[in-house]
Design a protein around this nucleic acid. Structure first.
Length: 494
RNA sequence: GCCGCCUUAGCUCAGUUGGUUAGAGCGCUAGAUUGUGGAUCUAGAGGUCCUCGGUUCGAGCCCGAGAGGUGGUACCA
């Protein structure tokens, strides 16, 4: 095949999705609402570039053998590795370290934008997606954690969720660490294994987690997952811990019986107590945030409080099957991340909204149905010699704040009407020879026609009736169309 | 990464034990209707049957490998 014969297949790379007007509107509305909440709480906006030097991103460093493991990386012309950011936290840690001397401390910033992960895509799992984060750098106070939780709850409601649709679950890494220390578990590998096992509680149940805490577990397909290798006593201690149950003050007092004995556990408990006090002051009750020892988050870097928000509302896909969205917001305390750069320990805590996932969840729940985006008023290009008049009419509409366009295809009138219909235009403007000679315009209320069309079976009658059509003096065009649009926004569409 | 299932028109799918020119519905384009959207009728366009290799006189169908999708599992900063 010669080069000239080659035809590329028109397709988006897997894991990357095209978003049309309806999707974008939902997404922007969420970003806008959540950003406003963040600003109201005193977080300043920060935008950093899509790329970071790879060594700033942390654990998953690209190298020449496997440059794109986990991230999308490339080598700059000075041979330094750069990679697309995989979250907004690593760039913040870099920025905070770089500018620490001059920043007001604690530094409170929010950021939103796409992040990229080079991993296997799946349904609802993309290689590019949008996050919206808020972080406080330079405060070790548990109240900073509590504030993020309360603000996250406010963010959900601003984005369109109702109270009761979501629930924050809060825990502290220090509790489990203290418990494991008291049980004699020291190895980092074992601790990580415990985190991963507990993280699967909702899926595998208590028995599955028990196996994963001990020797390991064989799943239905026969694959074997190696366990954390705890002894029987330690396994039962962890299971007793995660079964304490979710709640507020009651949960804290039950927790104190189990982990109060160890120094780190007592410290974690004291911090959760201060979070409880702060949440109470902020008016966040048990209907919006609870303590739940089974929430651990898989990530290694968390050092203290961890939390995530689940959606409680019922959602179904196109086929009516129930869909469970994972957590749509999550976060926690990471006191060591900035120290990677500065050597100085700088405490930090943050929350991250999964905007794309929240948008999908809102749609699935039918809260914010993605309506077909409203199109512009279409000025029919009836007579090529009158284009000046058409552009003038469109300009006049735009000046009045009404989206409008002149049809710029090459088809006749019928396809132009079809075009206006398909764009969901509220109205079409017709200026043929008759109208121009008489100093009038014909305006067609397309919504009215849409509503009437179901009752008309025969095309003769449909055409003769000219539903929703009126002819008005040219200088009343804008007013007439404004009236049509105003009526459309008041009445629900058919 | 590992295991199962799937891949035929833009979409949803049918396609007989392996047999001539691969079909349907929806959608799309045009006409009926030279200045009018929907419905109806008529006509039309649209296919490397995922790819490569093998078996066979003959493969959409059988065999092997690969790719993509999907469900589970592992990982997930």
């Amino acid at each position: 095949m010669s080069d000239a014969d080659f035809r590329p297949e028109a397709r988006a790379p897997r894991g990357f999705s095209d978003k049309r007007a309806g999707d974008l509107r939902v997404e922007r509305r969420i970003l806008d609402a959540v950003s406003k909440v963040y600003e109201r709480w005193g977080f300043e906006a920060l935008d950093t570039g899509a790329f970071e030097y790879a060594d700033a991103l942390g654990k998953f460093l690209p190298d020449s053998d496997r440059p794109n493991e986990g991230v999308f990386a490339l080598q700059d012309d000075d041979e330094q590795w750069m990679a697309l950011r995989y979250d907004l936290t690593a760039p913040l840690a870099r920025f905070a370290a770089e500018n620490w001397e001059t920043l007001p401390k604690p530094f409170r910033r929010y950021a939103f934008g796409p992040v990229w992960r080079n991993e296997k895509p799946g349904p609802g799992r993309y290689r590019q997606f949008i996050q919206c984060d808020a972080d406080t750098v330079g405060s070790a106070r548990p109240e900073a954690d509590a504030e993020l939780i309360a603000m996250g709850a406010e963010g959900f409601e601003a984005a369109g969720l109702r109270r009761g649709d979501y629930l924050f679950k809060v825990n502290s890494r220090k509790l489990l660490n203290g418990l494991l220390a008291a049980a004699g578990v020291e190895s980092q590998g074992q601790k990580l294994g415990v985190l991963r096992a507990v993280d699967k509680l909702d899926r595998l149940g208590m028995d599955g987690v028990r196996l994963l805490l001990g020797e390991g577990r064989k799943d239905e397909s026969g694959a074997f997952t190696k366990g954390a290798g705890l002894n029987g006593k330690a396994v039962e201690a962890v299971l007793a811990f995660v079964q304490i149950g979710a709640g507020r003050g009651d949960t804290l007092s039950r927790l104190s019986d189990v982990v109060g004995g160890s120094a780190e556990g007592a410290e974690g408990l004291e911090e959760l107590g201060r979070i409880e006090t702060a949440l109470a002051g902020l008016g966040v009750g048990a209907d919006r945030a609870v303590f739940d020892p089974s929430i651990v988050r898989g990530l290694e870097y968390y050092t203290g409080a961890v939390f995530e928000a689940d959606l409680l509302l019922e959602t179904t896909d196109e086929k009516g099957n129930a869909v469970r969205f994972g957590s749509v917001a999550s976060g926690g305390r990471y006191d060591d991340l900035v120290a990677r750069f500065t050597g100085q320990p700088i405490p930090a805590t943050g929350i991250s909204f999964g905007v794309s996932r929240l948008a999908a969840a809102l749609r699935a729940a039918g809260h914010n149905p993605v309506e077909t985006a409203r199109g512009p008023v279409v000025v029919i290009a009836f007579d090529q010699d009158q284009m000046t008049a058409y552009f003038a009419a469109a300009a006049e509409l735009r000046a009045a704040g009404i989206p409008a366009e002149v049809y710029l295809g090459s088809s006749g009138m019928r396809p132009q009407m079809k075009y206006a219909d398909r764009r969901m235009a509220p109205a079409a403007v017709i200026m043929g020879g008759d109208e121009i000679a008489a100093g009038t315009v014909t305006i067609k209320d397309l919504d009215l026609g849409r509503a009437l069309s179901s009752q008309v079976a025969d095309n003769e009658a449909w055409r003769a009736e000219r539903p929703g059509q009126m002819t008005v003096p040219r200088d009343q065009m804008v007013a007439a169309i404004a009236q049509i649009i105003e009526a459309a926004s008041r009445e629900p569409k058919p």
